[in-house]
Design a protein around this nucleic acid. Structure first.
Length: 387
DNA sequence: AATGCGGGGTA
DNA sequence: TACCCAGCATT
């Protein structure tokens, strides 16, 4: 059975797999690693432009390690799970200091780097160094649960353990593998190897064995699939029991002086860690008094609730996280003076520099609307024509 | 062993 | 709207 599984997948991949993703024509550990980190919990189509931009900015591990983390975060703005960016940067420095700038080859050593777990470490070791180790991402888990009729609650140790055990046992037999040859990149025509095997698993999960309405009739594994044989493709894998999302509310202060807005750097851990965000107005506080007391600036007009393209008052909007729903109310505060001495972590952002700022998605949305609003409000200050 | 951590796509 | 996605770190 194990031989069938890998052999069927590898044969299928030659004809129907993906071969044109930007990170597929390299075995440079830095590029493979970067793509793997960006792809954690993030879909391929979302990652591609971020990957290209990141590499253009930091072409090598050495350059990434040498840069301050503040230059890294803007390149992750909008991608989510910002701890990934901080870990990536920390790991680059660890490779320089702990490994003399040479990316480690052993999966167990790779997995010691921050932000790299077992699956990601194994994927890097397979692609870059020809290791014979399994991966276990969302695609592989779904395929395994269906093909072998595995039940269990997602996220539990019991299920994870069983899946890893299956993945180990299903590896292509050693004698069936062509050893990767230095300089002979795995571009689909070089014969079966571990890279094509793990790529085949992910491609099958991404294109045929999808969460909804899998295309079983053209699946290479149809003959050996337990879920297909028992009509349970819709029940496997089991769904994760989900609680109702808690509701939270936040009033974000949009403190504007001329064409700049006041931002604060968020703590490295927690929501939007390390990013720059709008200051929050604590519940029950009066906006005018709070702004003067904390930031030392004076309002020149009453605080306005909301922002909308064109400047009309807008309602609260909602931003959904995995674990709660946040109702956000932007509060526009035009202020008369900019204090000379700024508290640590505070920062005036020029509205013309939004593109390069490390902002979470909803804050970027607010400031994009503010930028248009300000342009319409002050036609004198050279409005930039966006969209 | 369970929970925290974003944002976008899809049905 | 609800669910899911090339997971990992922390508690």
């Amino acid at each position: 059975m194990a031989e069938d599984f890998s052999a069927l997948l590898i044969r299928w991949h030659a004809q129907h797999g993906r071969h044109d993703l930007p990170w597929q024509n390299t075995r440079d550990p830095y590029r493979v690693w970067l793509s793997e980190i960006m792809l954690q919990q993030t879909q391929v189509v979302t990652v591609i432009p971020y990957y290209q931009r990141f590499l253009a900015h930091f072409p090598t591990l050495e350059e990434l390690a040498a840069a301050p983390v503040e230059e890294v975060m803007p390149l992750w703005s909008g991608l989510g799970y910002y701890a990934r960016a901080r870990n990536l940067h920390a790991a680059a420095r660890a490779v320089m200091t702990l490994h003399g700038g040479v990316f480690p080859e052993a999966p167990e050593v790779i997995a010691q780097l921050p932000g790299i777990g077992r699956s990601t470490a194994n994927a890097i070791a397979v692609v870059c160094f020809g290791a014979r180790v399994p991966i276990l991402d969302g695609n592989v888990k779904r395929v395994l649960c269906r093909v072998f009729g595995i039940e269990g609650v997602p996220g539990t140790a019991a299920l994870e353990s069983r899946l890893w055990q299956h993945a180990e046992e299903l590896l292509p037999p050693l004698e069936s593998l062509l050893e990767p040859v230095a300089g002979n990149l795995s571009l689909g025509g070089s014969g079966p190897n571990m890279t094509t095997y793990i790529q085949a698993q992910m491609d099958l999960g991404a294109t045929l064995c999808t969460r909804n309405r899998p295309q079983c009739t053209v699946c290479p594994l149809e003959e050996i699939c337990v879920a297909r044989a028992t009509g349970r493709t819709a029940e496997l894998p089991q769904k994760k029991p989900r609680r109702a999302l808690p509701e939270r509310h936040a009033t974000l202060l949009v403190i504007v002086h001329e064409h700049r807005v006041l931002l604060e750097t968020r703590p490295p851990t927690g929501i939007w860690g390390g990013l720059r965000s709008l200051p929050e107005l604590p519940p029950g506080e009066d906006a005018t008094a709070y702004v003067e007391k904390v930031f030392g600036v004076t309002l020149i007009a009453p605080a306005q609730g909301g922002l909308r393209r064109g400047g009309s008052p807008a309602q609260t909007f909602m931003h959904v996280f995995t674990h709660f729903r946040l109702h956000i109310t932007p509060l526009l505060c035009h202020v008369s003076l900019r204090p000379s001495a700024m508290e640590a972590g505070l920062h005036w952002l020029d509205l013309t520099a939004l593109d390069t700022a490390a902002l979470p998605a909803p804050v970027r949305r607010i400031l994009a609307e503010l930028s248009l609003y300000e342009a319409a409000r002050r036609p004198v200050s050279a409005p930039r024509s966006t969209r």
